[in-house]
Design a protein around this nucleic acid. Sequence first.
DNA 1: ATTGAAAGAGTCTCAGT
DNA 2: ACTGAGACTCTTTCAAT
Lengths: 155, 155
Amino acid sequence: MSLKLNLDKLDLQIIQAMMEDAEISYADLGKKLFVSGGTIHVRIKKLEEQNIVKGRKLAVDLKALGYDVIAFIGIYLEKSSLYDAVAKELRSIPEIVRLNYTTGNYSMFAEIVTKDIQQLRFVLHDKLQNIKGIERTETFISLEESFSRNVVVDQ
Amino acid sequence: MSLKLNLDKLDLQIIQAMMEDAEISYADLGKKLFVSGGTIHVRIKKLEEQNIVKGRKLAVDLKALGYDVIAFIGIYLEKSSLYDAVAKELRSIPEIVRLNYTTGNYSMFAEIVTKDIQQLRFVLHDKLQNIKGIERTETFISLEESFSRNVVVDQ
DNA sequence: ATTGAAAGAGTCTCAGT
DNA sequence: ACTGAGACTCTTTCAAT
């Protein structure tokens, strides 16, 4: 893991600007930050080498593709030592798009994306509940995503 | 909102391939899918016009930037009719990166990213608890993100 | 480290099919 | 609707500072 912050103000400004607009050209970003496009290029290359910037991701409208259901699942484990084994099983379920090991009520927290409620039911009943080590789950279906955005990186 | 699927197999293949690698060139993607680079270009342009593809996002390592804490917050509202008003308040808190209106135990579900536990405490105590309409919250701090990935778009 | 310019690679447009 | 080629723009490299 890369240790923190030998990043200067310009690095942080570049990251913040590209989090807001990942498609801006180096020349334009250079103008905005009062350096040359070449400098932007060198800085980004360095940030990528250090794995601080990990490339670009396609942003898609899942609803438009028919993926209408987002659900959050709180998972109770029988023993918390089962975490790794259960995580491995959950990873093999493609509908589970994110998994976190958490403090608090639940041992783990999963996010599931499916086309409809039937598919969600199937994942919960026929896949999740059969995994050894999972005691029970609680499901929160998202009726509406109010917003989803990036952190603001302060400089 | 764009209604579903007048998308053909090629559209879905393009989306799936670019979700796996957003930086592949049109020429290379064309080779992979046995069409010309020009065709890829036209298709992606159409997908962007229809707002199915919403551009690219910068992927960054938040930990490397010093943002070490991810927490999920279940929020109980006094009355669920307060949703819009509370959502508006929550949107003005930059540490809250995602908010969903959910079924189940909680009325809403938020995700918070901060630099450390102190900042999380500050957001929870001094910001969240002062919002009118929030009855109480439950916090789940992520100790580890096992994985985070895209849906697999079936074709 | 930053710059500016030249080389290389990619996107975008369009006439032809 | 797809193709291939030309025009254009962007990324990448590099010698100079």
